[in-house]
Write a protein that binds this DNA or RNA. Sequence first.
DNA 1: ATAGTTCTTTGACTTTAGTCAAAGGTATGG
DNA 2: CCATACCTTTGACTAAAGTCAAAGAACTAT
Lengths: 287, 287
Amino acid sequence: MTAFRRFNRYFTRRIGVLDDHYLGQDRPLGEARLLFEIGDGASLRELRSRLGLDAGYLSRMAKALQAQGMVRLSAHPRDSRLRMIELTPAGRVEVEEQDRRAGAVAAGLLEGLGEAQRAELTRAMATAQRLLRLAGITVTLVDGAAPDALACLDSYAADIDARFPEGFDKDDLVRPQEVSGDAGAFFVAYEEDRPVGCGALRRLEPGVGEIRHVWVHPDARRLGLARRLLAALEQEASARHFTVVRLDTHAALTEAQAMYRACGYTAIPAYDDNVYASHWFEKRLAG
Amino acid sequence: MTAFRRFNRYFTRRIGVLDDHYLGQDRPLGEARLLFEIGDGASLRELRSRLGLDAGYLSRMAKALQAQGMVRLSAHPRDSRLRMIELTPAGRVEVEEQDRRAGAVAAGLLEGLGEAQRAELTRAMATAQRLLRLAGITVTLVDGAAPDALACLDSYAADIDARFPEGFDKDDLVRPQEVSGDAGAFFVAYEEDRPVGCGALRRLEPGVGEIRHVWVHPDARRLGLARRLLAALEQEASARHFTVVRLDTHAALTEAQAMYRACGYTAIPAYDDNVYASHWFEKRLAG
DNA sequence: ATAGTTCTTTGACTTTAGTCAAAGGTATGG
DNA sequence: CCATACCTTTGACTAAAGTCAAAGAACTAT
């Protein structure tokens, strides 16, 4: 904990300060940040929430950038309350220039290190980032019919449809009422208010729950999030006095199978006739 | 390199922003930073260079903090151009409050992680910090009579005087002229303009150099800096067409001996009658 | 002792950053 | 179609952050 604070202090002094100064070389930091954040186009509303800016403030900065020829503003094709902002070629050049400078600063910062040391630093940073991201993700119980829940299930279905040789039919997803209220539970994992994973629990028979649709967004994989979701589902199952949870999995999802085994699940005979399933697991819950 | 940039971006977004917001809870960020940076007292000049502030700006902030009863200003006892600034008891309370808040934010940030994950994060951060510090240290050739060189030798002498059972006599340090110009070389390691280590090379006999007084400031140990100094000294020796470098070391300095061995030095018979020496080493230089 | 340097203070600015509320044009649910 | 909610723009501010130059006091080197 003290180590964490010490690192933060050192790092923000050392890197953060630089960051600020190179980014806004010839324009205010706010504008530079905005320019950078636009990327391949976005709505003002999106930028406002991403950067946490006041509406008026943002509107003015956008106008200033437009006057400088860095961005183009237009109405959203389907909702003309929203304004879309995108980089002009000149704006793109500017962003690249920012990027080049940032790269040069970073290179200068590391030039004292040898190859092996650089690799070690990269490894350490990747680990730290992975854990910080994981720490920032919260797993929340939501209604099975909540928009975020449905969005996750949609992504899940699209995902496995691409991975299963035989495809996947969305009709085989759980119904919202199966995972809401007394019937079951649905968890969504949020990373900064954006859903990045889900998992469902439903009652299979008295004392027995079934875990379904454990899914993690591609951007949030390899963080250990699936385990967190699984833990939340198991805790919920315990709270509902289930003594056993079961789940099935498709032959193509080998990493998932490995994870279930590592989390204490053991293979059992088929308990249903799910056409997508090739392996069935269960876990006895303590308490 | 890309990984480095990615980490910076993520980290400053995630932590830096928070930092700003909690620090200045009821006072401007600039003042909060200044208050924090004062620590156990400093001169305005020192703070100005540490924080990179304009003299006028700093002067005004100091006055504001004084008016709020947070700091006391006084003249430097020996140079009354300089103004010393130190925390009053009220200021100290304020800094502690800042610190408490920062701690709470940090704790909140990490509460999603388990014990083992936290330990892993701490390890990764410590590694990253160590390497970043090392990357920021530059090793420079200076004149043997330069103030920084003498200051390092002073610290070195005090250091080993405390560690050698028999003490150490400063008269046994190299003379500046032995390590300047054609006679030898002196390197100082700087971390942000502050000397944190040194090492000397002098000619022992034709084709043979001697390395002496390799020292690292206690704050900069365990970074791998001694090796950097050693490498610089060896490179300098090569440039001077020495084919061999020798050095001796005291029985008490066991880590140093291990380092020399790891860097390719082999034990040899005594080549001098240094009263402090118990082990003698040499290394044949390539090229 | 003198010239040049260093450090701080002060006055007089400018630029950034950010806030708040009113107003106007668009969607959306019923 | 109507009330309501949403998104953006504009005007009118404020506070913070930072800059520049002049001036005065104190030190240092010669």
